[in-house]
Design a binder for these strands. Structure first.
Lengths: 234, 234
DNA sequence: GCAAAAGTGTTCCAAGTACACCCATGG
DNA sequence: CCATGGGTGTACTTGGAACACTTTTGC
């Protein structure tokens, strides 16, 4: 087989920033790194890209290894290639961010990694340049969610408007007027009101809603304003 | 030196999608590939990442090699890693897109590459998956320019409002009411009106404007609506 | 019966849109 | 003097923002 001669070959890894929402706080999932260097330090879930694997495949595999989940929202974020970012050997890292329903995440599957959810405001020191990766992912989720309805990926199929509002407030670290929020959200036509209520958070109960998947996919690229003055919050 | 054992090492390349605007049409700069495979086919400007080089450094080096330009707008776009994208040997490509002032581009510097500007609507067949890269870059420039004042990077330091409007119309393949366009653009406070006029395009002449760099950098992250209903155009 | 969360409407203001005429100049 | 492109203002519509009270129900 012919090769490109005289060029250096490098290691290629994928690292995943996995977001979840517990009803109150936006969190990311970290693991204790299982090998040297930096063994037992907090780290993003990652792995080397295998010879026959695309980048998307690698990120999906890595996400499944840790969470047991498939078919979740996963998007390429940025590629980090500073020559010294890994002290052992130059390694390029393609980062992906994932949005998962924290309830579907199965703790047991992944116990070898000792994974833990950390609120975004209390992320521990991470290895290498992973701090930068997390910062970038935070920015990106805020940016994208200001324009596109991606945050639904963090909620169960049935959710209430107070839950949804709490999610937006948590992502943007702000408070929103509930009347305006409901108005804006319902005006998108993305939500279908269900007949049953969630009584876990209040005595009266809040109606469940679910996504209108037709509208959801059709309007995903449109600019939807879920957030007032998003530019001010990024 | 310790190494990560048993992992495959890969080639890493950077490819640049270089945009320019000639006053009428949005174009990209392509070269005739100088080596096998696909020698003499139209291709993006690219190159292998060198051992001591970051990705940003590599893309700047490659851009300078072809255009002679430094310090221009250059942004990482996406990383392509399909295992079969390069038939010779697996090569990861980190793509960047650049916005340059086509007048500053110096033809002579790069004559070994036989570069040529192609209107976006008449891009020839490209090697490997570079067609996908160009498509993605087109989407990204439209997306980003709908919200941020990046298109100024395609113009000279002094430009007229008709020029600017023509640029937006060309990027979005649409027409815009000039009264509303001027109003929106001037309302951003980003432009400073100069005293002299460009008489090359009309007898009366159009006033030159330049960017207010203070406001430009301060408002770069804000969402500015240069385009009506941008969501409809992407 | 009361505390706690859910649900609902209206007024006001700002921004966007549609739209048509005059101006300056070189030929 | 006229053809060509440059420049300007207004009325209207729409979407976002501010804002307070009623409803339900478990305890």
């Amino acid at each position: 087989m012919i090769k490109y001669s005289k060029q250096t070959r490098l290691l290629l890894a994928v690292d995943c920033i996995i977001f979840g929402f517990d009803g109150d706080t936006l969190k990311i999932l970290l693991i204790k790194r299982g090998f040297q260097p930096e063994k037992d330090k907090w780290s993003l879930m990652g792995g080397f890209v295998q010879p026959a694997e695309s980048l998307d495949q690698a990120s999906n595999r890595i996400l499944k290894q840790l969470t047991g989940l498939e078919g979740v929202y996963l998007e390429q974020l940025h590629t980090f290639g500073n020559p010294l970012r890994d002290p052992i050997e130059r390694t390029i890292s393609v980062t992906y961010f994932a949005l998962i329903d924290i309830n579907k995440y199965e703790q047991q599957l992944s116990s070898d990694y000792h994974p833990e959810w950390f609120p975004l405001k209390r992320v521990p020191k991470l290895i290498f340049d992973q701090q930068d990766m997390v910062e970038l992912a935070k920015k990106r989720i805020r940016y994208k969610a200001a324009l596109h309805p991606i945050l639904f990926e963090l909620l169960p199929a049935k959710f209430t408007l107070p839950q949804l509002q709490s999610l937006y407030e948590s992502v943007y670290n702000t408070t929103i007027d509930k009347r305006n929020f409901r108005q804006r959200v319902l005006a998108t036509g993305l939500l279908i009101k269900l007949d049953d209520k969630d009584k876990s958070a209040s005595k009266r109960g809040a109606y469940y809603y679910q996504l209108n998947m037709q509208h959801y996919y059709a309007n995903f690229q449109a600019f939807l304003n879920f957030i007032p003055n998003p530019g001010n919050l990024l």
